[in-house]
Amino acid sequence: MFARNDAARRFYAAQGWTPDTGTQVEEAYGEPEVRLRRKLPAVTPAPARRRRPPRQPRSSRRTPSGEVDVLFDKMR
């Protein structure tokens, strides 16, 4: 942003941007530019999701009582 651009300074200041000590002059423009910075809010990571236990193959599944229920294919 150009140092003399007051409208841009107000716009960026309203968004939380502040100038730091960095400046430079681009030869193509011949005007000093000001570097801006903004602190971002901290992001808390999402809690880890519990993974489901792998499903038993279709031919044998455990019943709620813990017994193994074997299914037979009648098409054989």
Score class of each variant (00 low, 15 high):
25 V>P: 02
45 P>A: 08
44 T>E: 15
58 R>T: 06
40 L>H: 02
34 V>N: 00
36 L>V: 07
50 R>G: 07
32 P>C: 09
26 E>N: 10
53 P>Q: 04
71 L>G: 04
44 T>R: 10
40 L>S: 04
34 V>P: 03
24 Q>E: 13
68 V>S: 06
76 R>D: 14
44 T>S: 12
38 R>D: 01
60 S>H: 09
32 P>A: 13
25 V>M: 01
68 V>L: 10
46 A>Y: 04
57 P>L: 00
43 V>M: 06
32 P>H: 03
43 V>S: 07
67 E>N: 14
46 A>I: 07
34 V>D: 01
44 T>N: 08
53 P>L: 03
34 V>G: 02
73 D>H: 05
56 Q>R: 15
32 P>Y: 02
72 F>W: 04
36 L>S: 01
62 R>M: 08
49 R>Q: 13
75 M>S: 13
59 S>A: 04
59 S>C: 09
30 G>H: 01
55 R>D: 15
53 P>M: 01
36 L>D: 00
31 E>Y: 06
65 S>P: 10
70 V>M: 07
67 E>P: 11
49 R>V: 14
30 G>E: 05
22 G>L: 07
34 V>Q: 09
25 V>F: 00
66 G>A: 01
58 R>P: 07
74 K>A: 15
35 R>H: 12
20 D>M: 00
23 T>E: 09
52 R>G: 03
35 R>D: 11
50 R>A: 12
64 P>A: 12
47 P>E: 05
21 T>W: 06
21 T>E: 13
20 D>G: 02
21 T>D: 15
24 Q>K: 02
25 V>I: 13
30 G>R: 00
39 K>F: 10
58 R>A: 12
52 R>W: 02
75 M>N: 12
22 G>T: 10
51 R>G: 10
33 E>W: 05
51 R>K: 12
